[in-house]
Each structure stands twice: as C-alpha cells, then as structure tokens.
Amino acid sequence: MSFLRQTNRSLIKSLRKVKGWPSLVTHRLHEKFPEMLGHEVQGIPVQLYRHDQNFHTVLSFNHFVEFFSGIPKLDLRVQVEAFSHKGRSLGRNEIVLQRQGALQVDLSGLFPDLDHFGLFSVEMKVRPKFIPELSYLGTLHPHFMTVFLPQDKLSSPQMIHSHKLRQGHLLMPRLHRRPSSLLEPIGDLQNLEFYFLNSSASLINAQLNIFDSGSGQQLGARKMKIPGYGVQQIRLAEKDLADHAKDTMYRFEYLFDRSVDHKKPILFRQFKNQIWSCNHT
C-alpha cells in the first residue's frame, strides 16, 4: 500500500511539472472520443452576481464562433449554474445561442430564487455534428460579459469580463499573497464593498489588508472564511473611511490559504452623492 501511495504521489508530482497537464488530458480525450464529448470547450468561468436593492445582473453573450465559420445552424449551448453566497447550488439552466449575434439574459429570469449576491458559472458546449468544420479552430473558451444594472436612477450600468475558472477539485493548503495594482482615492467615497469569490469547492480562509499608498503604512485588515463556491462581502462604510485623511489613497493586498483561481475581488464603490461604480481589483 505504501509503495502504491508513493507511486501515486510521484506520478502526480511528475504530472504537475508538465504545465497544463489537466488540459492536455482533456484535449486528448476530446480528440479520441469526439462523438461522445463534442468539440472541446475548455474551462468554466465564474463571476459575481448581485440581486439586491442596488444592482441586478444581466449576462451578455455573443456567438463569437460565427465569425470563423459559415455553418448556418451552428448553435452554442450554454449552461449557467448559480450559487447562493454560502455556496449552495441554486440549479442549472441552459441557454441556446443561435447565430443571432448577441443575446442578453437577465439572471433572475433563469433563477427566480437568486440570493442577494453570489457566484455563477458558465459552461459552453458545441454539438458533435459540428466538429468536422470547427476542428480547425482548436480549443474554444466560453465568452460572456456581466452587466450590473443599477436600480437607482443616478448610477450607470457597470460591466466585468470573466476568465477566472471554476475549480472542481479540492485545493491543498498553500498560502498565496496577491497585491492589487488598484489605487483607490477615498476623498468622496461613502462605501467600499468588496466581493471575494471562491471559485473552488474548498473552504478558503482569506484576508484583506488595507494600506495607505502614500506612507506604505497598514491601515487595517479584515479576515474571512469563504465556503466553496461562495462569496464573502466585506464592507468599509463611511465611519471606517472617516478615520483617514481625505487625500488618502488606499491600496490593497489579499491573502488566501489556498491557490484559488479567482484572486481579484470585485470592488463596488459608492460616492457621497450615492452614485456607484465597480471594477475587478
């Protein structure tokens, strides 16, 4: 038994040294069994949704494959899965994207029981019958944009792209420190809301560190636990911001105890005139 365990560990270690081995295995399987597995579409990107008093969420798709293929009835099958902020699956729904250019879908139309905020994932499939004409394109990756529609009449829609992927396997403990390049002038801010997405099935311990970009001094820290496929909201309200001079510029750093793929929390800022904007960090 011990010998087998040792062999398995050595095998996994060797595979890890080959960059991107899981995708290579998947690629070979798709090549071997095209009728069963369809055209290879790699990765299941994730993103934040909001369904609260401030924002609702719309997914914007385009039939990007149509630019490279003349097949008239080529449809893309898109499976969306949504989770509560605690990581509970709210179900899966399929959208069929015809050769129609663009399609915008209100997430709450697909999932009537959406949480106030949470994570969703997007999987794309191409039917096996299109493989002969599409094989030259190689691997495809799902594409969509997430539009946050404001519920007030003051703000503007906000948009975020996605290429961070859902991780179906459990992650081994490994400390990861990610400094963000974002600089946040706090002068006219009323609120800062961070949304930490856990794109993996493992429970993640994370920490937000806040620094003054002028002096380099650490101004604060917030610790959190994020359940698998869950989202944690961290809010810095006006009273937190009031502790610092108006010309302070924040910078941020994130610590994760596992190498979760999504290491760029989404930040929503609200100015004192109630207007919101957002970006990934």
Binding site: N62, F64, V65, F67, F68, Y136, L137, G138, T139, L140, H141, P142, H143, M145, F148, L154, S155, S156, P157, Q158, M159, I160, H161, I275, W276, S277, C278, N279
Partner: peptide
C-alpha cells in the same frame, strides 16, 4: 455617472 470595461476580441476565445 460612468461605467467602463475593456473588451476582448472574439479570437481571444479560440486557440486557432
């Protein structure tokens, strides 16, 4: 009020 995002071309999503 503004919102902005950079965009990625369709060929970003195919490996050909």
């Amino acid at each position: 009020a503004l919102g902005i995002e950079h965009s990625l071309a369709p060929h970003y999503y195919v490996s050909a």
